[in-house]
Amino acid sequence: MHRSILRSPSAGLVIVLLALGTLLTLVAGSHVDPVSGQSVNNFLNAHTLIQMATDASTFAIMGVGATLVIISGAIDLSVGAVYALAGVAMAMVLRAAGPMNPVATVGLGLATCLTVAFLCGLANGLMVVGLGVHSFIITLGTMWILRGLAFVASHAESILVPAALTSVAKASLGLGASLSPVPLLAMLAVTAVGAVFLNRTVMGRHVLAIGGNAEASRFSGLRVNRIRLGVFLISAVTAGVAAFLGASFYGSATSSDGTGYELYVIASAVVGGASLAGGKGSALSAMLGALLIVLIRQAIRTLHLDQNYEWIIIGTAMIVAVVVDQKGSQLLARKLTKQTLSS
């Protein structure tokens, strides 16, 4: 049991996160809280941690979808644009609907976000499967098309969303006025659902199979094209969930929301060990990957490093993380092979 935990692909990331977190706690220093009069660590405090989780939640939620797409052997570059279009569509629908009771507002908003995202995923999936063009090209195209639709529909305005949504996304759930754990909880929930889907459901296993060997999967009777379509639907829907949370949390939506998110999301998945060759990846690791990226950004702030270096550090860290992960799994594979052969 111990060995299987240490061997799981997430273990290395957890260790790196804990090490980096400990280091930051030690060097961050502390300040005196003006209200309570107690000394508070500049890094290890509820406010900073929940803020980081909120930042990470967007990437982590979409990262679960991206992980599935990557495991299946494809790529989805359109999730940032789906995020923008779903957010803008929700804000516009709610503005047109006018004042309603809070439950109806939240329900209509969520339904709009998810429906729009689902349709975007359907378009991606149908084109990837039906046109036989590489998913990189298709989703590069839809990335621009969908953002363009959001731009045209909203006239590039920032549209406010009703306060009912913000009060849900920022609910303190009894933690104290300035803390809002809803994005954190949503991130954990989506990751959990993603992990169960991947490890325990029939379709999850099928996604791993077609990513490992699509030909052999077809020879085993799997409907490969349906599964391919399915992962694009899921990917887009996770972008819809993230858009609902994001627009609600920040109180508005515009067509430029989520610009560049697709790359953060893909980075989270691959830092989490997903293989672009397909067949390998984990939802939990994708969340840890998102947390690592956010933690690095936080470290730059906490340590008062020059913010201008943020991109350089994140880029370097991503390459290092992936290289270390690959070397590690090669070593492990060799060890496993030897053990199996000698047993």
Partner: peptide, 21 residues
């Protein structure tokens, strides 16, 4: 190797792939 097995998957997983449902 190309048509019979998903080599990256476990032996058990390959065995049950067609009948997983």
């Amino acid at each position: 190797k190309r048509q019979g097995l998903v080599l990256s998957m476990l032996t058990r997983e390959n065995t049950t792939l067609p009948i997983l449902d």
